[in-house]
Design a binder for these strands. Structure first.
Lengths: 212, 212, 212, 212
DNA sequence: GATGAATGAGGTTTCATTCAT
DNA sequence: GATGAATGAAACCTCATTCAT
């Protein structure tokens, strides 16, 4: 996709596609366990059961592997979110009187579930956003998808909303919920998870639906 | 305080303290510019105008330098926040009828200002939280301070609050605001900063003060 | 003819001969462009339009390819030299009073033309003579041919020659002329080519024909 | 001396200068024995009795080492040639009737002696001229010195010379003699060295001094 | 036969850290 | 105390060659 000439092989044989996949899976596992900087190409190759040379014939460097892993991860998240978000979407489409509280709960739940996939990979991505523009770019693009999804939900109930600037609202809602959920999944909190989630839902509910 | 034996010298002479400081300042500058992994000890020493050997006589390793830089950074933030938060605190202490909207605006403003200090260092810290337990520990402790501060503010106006679980609320408020502000400062947003901040304030205001 | 077992196929089918040829041509082009060390087998195969595997079924290693390329190159030179040297030979055979000056001029011209073929391949061969005994052997043998040719010319006019040690003279004449012409063709000289060639001819002429 | 930023250390301490020297000497020995491409940095370091890291703190790459070795080699040659060429120069300066034959013999002898220094390094340099522009540049510059020297000799006896284009003559003389002597020193010839040298001297003598 | 995937030894290079001066 | 030289493990990457399909 870049304009740089890449020496990386474009797999044609089935075996090659399989190998490339094994490398990606091994890389992902290691990035989750030990982070990007803590993982090296030799290890990735070893875990994938291939020679270093093979690693380098599929990828120019370590970074493109990470970018590919990210893309796959986001794709999985998107699938899962759509699936989990089904009820929200459904209730919105069908009924006129969607229960706002329920909508919020389901939205939070969907984001929560998405984070089940791989909290530590998410962590690593977040870390790399800051130090690598390419990671930022990929991440930004994928996040845009989720934001749009939220914007869609908001739009569909716009007449009952307390907010007018939907675009800005979508961002605020998305980032708040994401961040809080991510921290919950990532670190053991010293207070009960349920309490945090309840407050998060309350916050979103009142912000979006309670005119005051 | 620790049981580990450290070869690092504890500077007592004024010159030594000065040198240690030069190293820390050089390190900080480099961490901001190129990140932790992108900076090496030789560079730090060079920028500080000392020999590598000296660097290692003041610090056992590279990591403690980073931890120290973090601590200093948080200390500066705390000072700045207290200063910026002065009006909030003042208005709370004195008068009975604190204007909730104004309180929120000042809180957000204080956090915003704190991030002026060094968005890129903040970025680097956030990145390292995930890969280094010590960084996480230091960061967690320092963040606890801010959370406590927010908790204090909430407590002082507890009778006018719409929330009951103050502890959980403080976390939700803190993380939401932090994250949104941090992103604003770190990345150029494609929609106006003012709009995001306005929504953030609205969200916090309704959550905290509007019973619905 | 050799006792070494070679896995390299001896092509008999026309297609195979054609393929082997394509590989040799590709290799030669690349050796000229990037030198022996700068060219790798994958590239050769790619440029020849075959798979690496095929490359290795026609040649055991990379080196034999280079040796073969050299041999072909020398064969071409020989043909060209004979052709260009035709007048020299002819005038010698027929007439008794060959014009010595003309003979020299034609000799130099023949060597000059031979170098038109591929200065950069010549360069690469010269470079490899020193580091590879096999290249040296092939080169030595092929050069012997040219020397013999010169020796023949000298012998045929021996009664008019000012020199007596024809064998040594042939070497001295050959290497001097070769070297000077090669440098002319290989590098841009800062003085005019014509002047150098004139002096070369003068030198050879006086050495061979002027008794002093 | 280049404009490129080099990470190579500029040695200040005496020890460092000594180490750099050890590396250069080891490199030279290996280049002589196994050629440039046949030598690697690890070996150089080992032979110099230092760690690879040290090698790389003194030189950015292998090439600069080679260039430095070349420069030193040429410097030594120059010294030696001047020394050996002393009689030539002396006889020219003092006496009016320099014996041309003797002058030639001494010139050839001086070039011959210069090649005693390290025929195999000379070989390696010649090989690299063709594949590396930097080597070519250094070599060209150093060779210019020798050519100038020869030009000087020719000028000082210009009234007795049979040639008029001294500049071109100097080149032709230099390259012929160089090449023939180099081959003698480098490869075992199948005919006696003395015979070749005698012919070389005859050639130069008649070319330069015999009007025909 | 042909293909291109896979191998892995071996080369280059970096950098946190130690140590001699 | 300070200096910067030295270390070497470990990372990165290449490419001639073999091998499964």
């Amino acid at each position: 996709m870049g304009t740089r000439t890449s020496k990386a092989r474009t797999p044609v044989q089935e075996r090659a596609i399989h190998t490339r996949d094994r490398i990606l899976r091994a890389a992902r596992a290691l990035f989750e366990e030990k982070g990007y900087h803590g993982t090296n190409s030799k290890e990735i190759a070893a875990r994938a059961g291939v020679a270093v040379g093979s690693f380098y014939s599929y990828f120019d460097e370590k970074k493109p592997v990470f970018l590919e892993v990210i893309r796959q991860y986001y794709r999985e998240i998107a699938e899962k979110t759509l699936q989990e978000g089904e009820p929200v979407a459904a209730s919105l489409k069908v009924g006129k009187k969607a229960d706002p509280k329920k909508t919020i709960r389901e939205l939070v739940r969907a984001l929560y579930e998405a984070h089940t996939l791989s909290p530590s990979l998410h962590r690593e991505i977040t870390a790399m956003i800051y130090s690598d523009p390419e990671v930022e770019a990929v991440s930004a693009q994928e996040e845009r998808g989720v934001r749009e999804l939220i914007l869609g939900v908001l739009s569909s109930v716009s007449e009952t909303l307390a907010v007018s600037d939907l675009e800005a609202a979508a961002r605020v809602v998305h980032r708040s919920a994401e961040e809080i959920i991510h921290r919950l999944r990532m670190f053991r909190s010293d207070i009960d998870e349920g309490r945090i989630l309840r407050e998060l839902e309350d916050m979103l509910y009142r912000y979006l639906f309670v005119k005051g």
